[in-house]
Amino acid sequence: MPDDGRIPAGVRLAVTTFTVLPVRAGRVDRSSAAVAMALAPAVGAALGLPLAGLLLGVGAVGPPLVAAGVTVAAGALLTRGLHLDGLADTVDALGSYRRGAAALEIMKKPDVGPFGVVALVLVLLVQAAALAALTARPWPATLAALVTGAAAGRLGVAWACRRGVPAARPTGLGALVAGTVGRPALAVGTLAVCAVAVAAVPGRPAQGPLAVVAALGVTLLALRHAVRRFGGITGDVLGAVVELVSTLVYVGLALTG
C-alpha cells in the first residue's frame, strides 16, 4: 500500500530544514526525506518572494547596495544562517587538504578558520553586489530573479541528494537524505526553476535558464570534488551547495554585457 503519510511529513521536514518557520516536527525518515529534498526548490521559491519584496521596498527609498545588504542579511536570518555555516565549514575542510575522517573532524569544530572566513566574506559581497544590480530592473524581473536564485540554491541540494551520491557519515542529515532524490523529481524541479528564470532578464529569455544550468554544472563539479575528499555528502556540504548555486545564479542574472 502507498505510504500517504510521507508527503505531509516531507513537507514539514522541508520547511523546518530550509526555513526558520516554527513548524511542528513530524515523522523523520528516509521516505519523508525524499519528499523534503524533492520539494526543496519550492521552499526556496517561497523564500525568494519576501526577499524580493524587501529588496524592492528598501531599494525604493534607499541606495541599491543598502537594499541588497539588508536583503542578504534577511536571507541569512530566514535560514538561521545554517547554509552560510555549512559553507564556512566545508571550505575550511577542503582548505586543510585532509581527507576522510580527518576532514570531517575539521567540519565538526565550532570555530571558523581563515578559509571559511574568506569564503563567507566573498560570497556575501558578491551576493550583495549582484542583488544591487538587479534593483535597476523592472519589478517583475527583480521578483523572478530573487525567486530563481533562492529556488536554484535548493535545487542544488536536490541534485546533491540524487541517487548514487553517498553520505560521508553513517548518521546526521547527510545520511538521512543522501541518495533519496530520483531523476523524475530532478527533471521537474530543474524545468520549473528554469521556467521562472526566463522572466528574470528582460529581453533575454535564454539568459536566466542558462545561468541556472551553468551554476548547477559548476556546483556539481565542486560537489564531486567534495565527495572524493570527504567520502560523501554532509549537512555542511548541502549548506555550501545552497550558497554556491544561489550566488552563481545571481551573478549570471545580473550580467548585462
Rank of each mutant, 00 (worst) to 15 (best):
V177D: 05
A185M: 11
V165H: 13
R204M: 12
A197T: 02
Q207K: 08
L191K: 10
T171D: 15
V201H: 01
A167D: 09
G164V: 14
A158Y: 02
T171R: 15
V177T: 08
A197V: 03
P184V: 07
P202L: 09
G156E: 02
V157S: 12
V201A: 08
G156F: 02
T180W: 04
P184H: 06
L176K: 03
A178I: 02
A152Q: 05
V201Y: 04
R154D: 08
T171Y: 14
G179L: 00
V188M: 08
A187R: 07
L155Q: 01
A160Y: 02
V188Y: 08
L176V: 05
P170R: 15
L176Q: 03
P166W: 00
L176P: 02
R154L: 14
V196K: 06
A152K: 02
G172R: 08
T190I: 07
P202E: 07
P205Y: 11
V177W: 10
A168D: 09
V201E: 06
L191C: 12
L155V: 11
P184N: 10
P202C: 08
A160E: 04
A168R: 09
G156I: 00
V188C: 08
A175I: 07
L155K: 05
G203Y: 09
A199K: 07
G174N: 00
G164T: 13
L173N: 00
G156S: 01
G189V: 07
V196D: 03
Q207E: 12
A167E: 07
C161H: 00
V181I: 03
A200F: 10
R204A: 13
A200N: 12
A151L: 13
G179P: 03
G182S: 13
G203N: 12
A206D: 11
R154K: 15
L186I: 06
A199E: 10
A195H: 04
A158S: 13
C194K: 06
P170C: 14
C161I: 00
V188F: 08
R204W: 12
R204P: 10
V193C: 12
V165W: 08
A168K: 10
R204T: 10
V165D: 13
P166T: 09
P170M: 14
T180I: 03
T171W: 14
T180E: 06
P166K: 04
G174I: 01
G174C: 04
G172Y: 02
A158P: 01
G164W: 12
V177G: 04
G179T: 05
A199R: 09
P170Y: 14
P184K: 08
G156N: 01
A160Q: 04
G172D: 05
A178Y: 00
A167G: 15
P205H: 11
Q207C: 11
L155S: 05
A192V: 03
G182F: 07
A158G: 06
L176E: 02
G179C: 05
V188N: 09
V198I: 02
T190G: 08
T190S: 11
G164N: 13
V181D: 01
A185K: 01
W159T: 01
V188Q: 08
A197H: 00
L186Y: 01
A158T: 03
V165K: 13
P205V: 12
V177S: 05
V165R: 13
A199N: 09
Q207T: 13
P202G: 06
T190R: 01
G189R: 01
L176Y: 03
A206I: 11
P166I: 07
V157L: 13
A160F: 02
L173V: 01
T190K: 06
T171F: 15
